[in-house]
């Protein structure tokens, strides 16, 4: 399970921002998680709770915004449904993942003095 490693990388980044702004408390962290990013949202939430208890930052909430995966033809842009052969039925060109690959830290809400 690499979700714990993802949470650690996330919270290192959050900590860095919080220290730079001398934050008293981090209230909320929002991330965007692509369906095709290779990270499981439920496992990530569990890993976050485990991290939060171990690190003593019990008041921080994690919002995970899921992003559906979408494939489209590299030629004509026509979308190819998930689960289909990843080739455009019209042009025969390979499809490309156009959304749903991200593991993005979007926003941190912190309490400052």
């Amino acid at each position: 399970m690499h979700e714990y490693a993802i949470v650690r990388a996330l919270m290192d980044r959050v900590e860095q921002e919080a220290q730079a702004r001398k934050a008293l408390r981090v209230h909320r962290v929002r991330i965007r998680l692509g369906e095709a990013a290779g990270v499981d949202g439920a496992l990530l939430a569990t890993a976050f709770r485990t991290y939060r208890e171990a690190a003593g930052c019990g008041a921080t909430d994690l919002d995970v915004v899921p992003v559906p995966a979408r494939w489209a033809c590299t030629g004509c842009g026509r979308e190819v449904a998930l689960g289909e052969v990843l080739q455009c039925p019209v042009c025969g060109l390979p499809a490309r993942l156009i959304a749903g690959d991200e593991i993005l830290l979007e926003r941190i809400e912190m309490e400052v003095a």
């Binding site: 993802i6 993005l104 830290l105 926003r107 941190i108």
Partner: peptide, 17 residues
């Protein structure tokens, strides 16, 4: 009430890797 400062980061969590 405390001041809540929102910080937009918009960076991959895997940026370090």
């Amino acid at each position: 009430d405390p001041d809540i400062l929102p910080i937009e980061v918009q960076e991959s969590i895997l940026a370090g890797n």
